[in-house]
Amino acid sequence: MIAEQLQLILQSAWAALPTLLRAAPITLGYALAAMLLGLPLALLVALARLSGIAFLRWLSGVYVSFIRGTPLLVQIFVVYYGLPSFGVTLSPLVGGVLALTLNAAAYLSETMRAAILSVPRGQWEAALSLGLTRRQTLRLVVLPQAARVALPSLGNTLIGLVKDTSLVSVITVVELLRSAQLVIARTFEPFGPYLAAALIYWVLSSLLELVQRRLETRLARQG
């Protein structure tokens, strides 16, 4: 009996695999889009939190606190179902990417802020004494060093985004998890498709972790 059940699960997982593999690039695309769009926003938020302007520090602090203090699922609902109340209607694709971007930017901003603060103050003073402006010092001296410090956390955030994309399935985005649910709706066998989806998430995360480690090793050799 158990052997037959296991065989049924493996068969359903194998049957669902082609559909899920077609959805995997969508999942990865969502994560990469949120990461690439979130990085510039995160840098602006991090600089605002380090700014000498009290209002900017307060505003950026509220943003980070709100995003970090509320569930991503609620944020997705606010963006997709809440914004139409103000006349802003987004497609599931845009709404999902926007919610993930805003969420990622809040976490990335803290990573960047800590990385910038980790650069010794003497680096700023030396660059300024050579005639560089504060903006040039930030761009040419501080940020390259901060990027090395932030790389592990940036990689972890991207891996987390790959898993978080499963939440956009609630707004009908046909990514990996939603594809598994659609397969289950046809076959009425949930374990196999969910197991196959979990394995694909695991493989994607493992590959990204491998890339992250190789980048860290290369940067360590260059340093």
Rank of each mutant, 00 (worst) to 15 (best):
I2S: 14
I2E: 15
Q5D: 15
Q5S: 15
L6W: 15
L6M: 15
I9A: 10
Q11T: 14
A15W: 15
A15V: 10
P18Y: 05
L20N: 02
A23G: 00
P25A: 05
A31D: 02
M35G: 06
M35K: 03
L37T: 11
A42N: 06
L43M: 15
V45N: 04
A46G: 03
A46T: 05
A48L: 09
A48I: 04
A48P: 03
I53D: 10
F55A: 14
F55P: 08
V74D: 03
P84G: 00
G95H: 00
G95E: 01
L100S: 04
T101K: 11
N103A: 09
A105P: 09
M112V: 12
L117Y: 07
W124Q: 02
E125H: 09
A126Q: 05
A126T: 06
L132A: 00
L132D: 00
T133N: 03
T133M: 03
Q136H: 01
T137N: 02
L138F: 06
R139D: 13
V141I: 11
Q145Y: 03
A146P: 04
A147E: 01
V149K: 10
P152F: 11
G155F: 08
G160V: 11
V162T: 12
K163I: 12
L167P: 02
S169W: 06
T172N: 10
L176F: 01
L176R: 05
R178V: 00
R178G: 01
S179A: 13
L182S: 07
R186F: 08
E189N: 13
F191Q: 09
P193V: 08
Y194C: 04
Y194H: 09
A198R: 05
W202E: 14
S205P: 13
E209F: 13
L210W: 14
R218D: 01
